[in-house]
């Protein structure tokens, strides 16, 4: 066995890796924010009194959960192209990732909504709050609090899965790696570095979600209960 690692040529190209990592983080942040909004609306839709809305949201969730992300990305990519719409690879990647994570977020947040006891809603109804007010003031925050670990894990998973957008030449971290390794012939070293960078990105996201949790769940902060 003769393991001969040489990171010299790779570390020389650190600005490329940095750009790739930043682009990955931007993709993930955008998809997280938009995906959370879709997830909330989708979960409300799945619990709607209108059966057509329930059906549409159900089809969306099942369609996404039962197809590979890469296929979804190609569908968005070629779908937009065949409509004659010209978007950057980044925009296409962000859109596809948002559609994907929105479906998973819908299911997770719906589980959160379902966990709110019926009595909470009756108490709110008894105080004459409207349906919208009940969602906004009574259901949303405790529901998200209940599923926060599952929801944030999903967003971290999405960040990792964003590596497949290298297939449509979004210049994120994995695309940079593919380029560098063919340029330097140092494939193993390249992917070791990239793996380390992905771990760092995961840690950054988890830290971000932890801080966000402190901000939006003041009771947790005040009572020092673990999330």
């Amino acid at each position: 066995m003769n393991l001969n690692l040489d990171f010299g040529a790779i570390l020389e190209r650190w600005p490329m890796f940095l750009d790739g990592a930043i682009l990955t983080l931007q993709l993930a942040s955008l998809a997280t924010i938009l995906g959370a909004v879709i997830g909330i609306l989708g979960a409300i839709g799945r619990r709607s009194r209108n059966p057509v809305i329930v059906r549409i949201c159900g089809i969306y969730v099942e369609a996404i959960r039962n197809t590979p992300l890469l296929v979804q990305i190609f569908l968005v990519y070629f779908g937009l192209a065949s409509l004659g719409l010209k978007f950057s690879a980044f925009a296409v990647a962000a859109l596809a990732l948002t559609i994907n994570v929105g479906a998973y977020a819908t299911e997770i947040i719906r589980a959160g909504f379902d966990s709110i006891p019926r009595g909470q809603i009756e108490a709110a109804e008894g105080l004459a709050l409207s349906r919208t007010q009940i969602y906004w003031h009574i259901v949303l925050l405790p529901a998200i609090e209940k599923v926060y670990p599952a929801l944030t894990s999903q967003f971290v998973l999405l960040m990792l899965a964003s590596s497949v957008t290298s297939q449509i030449s979004a210049e994120e971290l994995t695309a940079v790696a593919n380029f560098v390794q063919s340029d330097t012939y140092r494939a193993f070293e390249t992917y070791i570095l990239v793996a380390v960078l992905y771990i760092l990105l995961s840690l950054i996201m988890r830290l971000g979600f932890w801080l966000l949790g402190l901000a939006i769940f003041p009771r947790r902060r005040r009572l020092r209960t673990a999330l």
């Binding site: 006891p117 009595g119 009756e122 009574i138 405790p142 609090e145 009771r219």
Partner: peptide, 10 residues
């Protein structure tokens, strides 16, 4: 007012 107070926990 109900048997199970139903205060909003958050």
């Amino acid at each position: 007012v109900f048997q199970s107070y139903n205060l909003f926990p958050h």
